[in-house]
Amino acid sequence: MKKCVLTVVGKDRVGIIAKVCNYLADANINILDISQTIVDGYFNMMAIVDAGNATKDIAIVNSELEEIGLSIGVSIRCQREEIFEKMHRI
């Protein structure tokens, strides 16, 4: 299993979850856990995904998700779990 942390942040609009989830399914990336909130019109989603069987390298997945984010007006990041943990260690 190759866990990654996926974050999506931006102004809420119709179709954000659909775009992200369709991309993940097409790349054979499984969602293990997901949480999303909308606060005062701003969308925030965090998901833990398993990219162990992904059809693309994580760097490509991150780049393509960033492009999708730009096209729909949100910021999307996908980081390997171990990198995310090291970056957010106190």
Score class of each variant (00 low, 15 high):
Met1Gly: 09
Met1Asp: 04
Lys2Glu: 03
Lys3Thr: 13
Cys4Ile: 03
Cys4Thr: 08
Val5Gln: 00
Val5Asp: 00
Val5Ala: 01
Thr7Asp: 07
Thr7Arg: 11
Thr7Asn: 15
Val8Arg: 15
Gly10Met: 10
Gly10Glu: 12
Lys11Gly: 02
Lys11Leu: 08
Lys11Glu: 15
Lys11Gln: 13
Asp12Val: 02
Arg13Ala: 10
Val14Ser: 15
Val14Arg: 08
Gly15Phe: 14
Ile17Lys: 03
Ile17Arg: 05
Ala18Arg: 12
Lys19Tyr: 07
Val20Lys: 02
Val20Phe: 00
Tyr23Cys: 15
Tyr23Phe: 15
Tyr23Arg: 09
Tyr23Leu: 13
Leu24Pro: 05
Leu24His: 11
Ala25Phe: 04
Asp26Leu: 06
Asp26Ser: 15
Ala27Lys: 13
Ala27Ser: 06
Asn28Ala: 03
Ile29Ala: 00
Asn30Arg: 04
Ile31Asp: 06
Leu32Met: 13
Leu32Ile: 13
Asp33Ala: 11
Asp33Ser: 09
Asp33Pro: 04
Ile34Val: 12
Ser35Arg: 07
Gln36Arg: 02
Gln36Cys: 00
Thr37Ala: 07
Thr37Val: 06
Ile38Arg: 13
Val39His: 05
Val39Asn: 07
Val39Ile: 14
Asp40Cys: 04
Gly41Pro: 08
Gly41Phe: 10
Tyr42Thr: 13
Phe43Leu: 04
Phe43Met: 08
Met45His: 07
Met45Ile: 13
Met46Ile: 15
Met46Pro: 05
Ala47Gln: 02
Ala47Thr: 02
Asp50Trp: 06
Ala51Ile: 00
Gly52Glu: 10
Gly52Val: 13
Asn53Met: 05
Asn53Asp: 08
Ala54Ile: 06
Ala54Glu: 02
Thr55Phe: 05
Lys56Gly: 00
Lys56Tyr: 05
Asp57Glu: 14
Asp57Gln: 10
Asp57Ala: 09
Asp57Pro: 01
Ile58Leu: 15
Ala59Thr: 09
Ala59Lys: 11
Ile60Asn: 06
Ile60Trp: 04
Ile60Ser: 06
Val61Glu: 06
Asn62Trp: 02
Asn62Lys: 14
Asn62His: 14
Ser63Val: 05
Ser63Lys: 14
Glu66Phe: 06
Glu67His: 02
Glu67Lys: 08
Gly69Val: 04
Leu70Trp: 07
Ser71Pro: 00
Ile72Gly: 06
Gly73Ala: 03
Gly73Ser: 03
Ser75Phe: 12
Ser75Leu: 08
Ile76Arg: 05
Cys78Ser: 10
Arg80Thr: 07
Arg80Asn: 12
Arg80Gln: 14
Arg80Ile: 15
Glu81Asn: 11
Glu82Gly: 09
Ile83Thr: 05
Phe84His: 10
Phe84Ser: 06
Glu85Thr: 05
Lys86Phe: 01
Lys86Ala: 03
Lys86Asn: 01
His88Ile: 08
His88Phe: 09
